[in-house]
């Protein structure tokens, strides 16, 4: 066998080997996902029942009951976060895309937004703890919502900014040349055509805060009872999962798995939805 053939075979082998290693790495990664999902589904399904959504979290030793108050709390806290974070985020994103496009100040704010985006959520919780919880003297749903709003904000800023910059500048110019005021151009034309992208950002932000636990332990804390007073501590699903998981009671464990199943399914659906939305419509021109 000549040197050349040998070399050729070796290179072919290297190619095949790399392919095998790459596919193994991918499969390995996916197998963990499959493991986690399988465990969550199999353990969560057995505790899934209508009572989960209609009954309160049970006192120890935790037989029966559900997570109704925790679901309600999660919805409330997330709503507060979205109500605060979304308008501010869209506004700041508008400023970045329309008024600070090629300015140094815009680059700085964009950079700071990225930094805020990756700040540890526990530190944001600690911040809201000393901003709201300490002055009020007690934990509250409002503080929890505020902490999550700090997570929503940079996500929405970023997607709004990026989506608006994808809108062709001819649309701005056409509208402005017709004598439309700039704010109307931005709100009624640019924001409208980037609608799908902005909604994607909000969905991504919601997906991110749905499973958030650490900042809530410093702000919303937990509550065994039904609570609709925003100035009182409130139960949320991730915090209850944590509390129940670390307890010695089988009933609580089952509820923790059921909660984990619902939260994971919700988050997976949200992120799937947002990605499909993003893939299909970069920017629409209607």
């Amino acid at each position: 066998m000549s040197d050349n053939t040998w070399m050729y075979r070796r290179r072919r082998l290297g190619n095949a080997l790399a392919l095998v290693l790459g596919s193994l790495a991918t499969l390995f990664g996916l197998s963990w996902l499959a493991w986690i999902l399988w465990v969550t589904i199999s353990k969560g399904m057995s505790a899934l029942s209508p009572a989960l959504f209609t009954q309160l979290t049970p006192p120890p030793p935790g037989d029966g009951g559900g997570l109704a108050n925790a679901f309600f709390g999660s919805v409330m806290v997330s709503l507060i976060a979205l109500l605060i974070g979304t308008p501010i985020g869209i506004g700041a994103g508008l400023w970045l895309a329309e008024y600070a496009q090629r300015r140094a100040l815009g680059t700085v704010v964009r950079f700071l937004n990225d930094i805020l985006l990756s700040a540890p959520s526990i530190v944001l919780g600690l911040f809201v703890y000393s901003l709201v919880v300490k002055p009020l003297g007690h934990f509250s749903a409002l503080a929890g919502g505020l902490a999550l709003a700090l997570i929503v904000l940079p996500v929405v800023v970023r997607t709004t900014d990026e989506m608006l910059r994808l809108v062709p500048s001819t649309m701005r110019e056409a509208a402005l040349s017709l004598g439309v005021p700039q704010w109307k151009v931005i709100v009624q034309i640019l924001l409208r055509s980037a609608r799908a992208g902005v909604v994607t950002g909000i969905l991504l932000a919601l997906a991110r805060i749905t499973g958030e636990t650490a900042p809530l332990l410093f702000t919303a804390l937990n509550n065994q009872y039904w609570n609709h007073d925003l100035l009182k501590p409130i139960a949320t699903v991730p915090v209850v999962i944590f509390q129940f998981a670390m307890s010695p009671y089988d009933g609580w464990h089952a509820l923790a798995w059921a909660g984990a199943l619902v939260v994971t399914a919700f988050v997976l659906v949200l992120s799937l939805l947002s990605r499909l939305l993003l893939a299909r419509t970069k920017v629409t021109h209607d």
Partner: peptide, 25 residues
């Protein structure tokens, strides 16, 4: 698109669920 979507989904599993799975399984 779908294969990478699956890998990226792993990122959206909430951290408390990772913890629960780690703790129990």
């Amino acid at each position: 698109t779908y294969a990478s979507l699956l890998v990226e989904l792993l990122a959206s599993v909430p951290s408390v669920v990772f913890g629960l799975w780690g703790y129990v399984v």
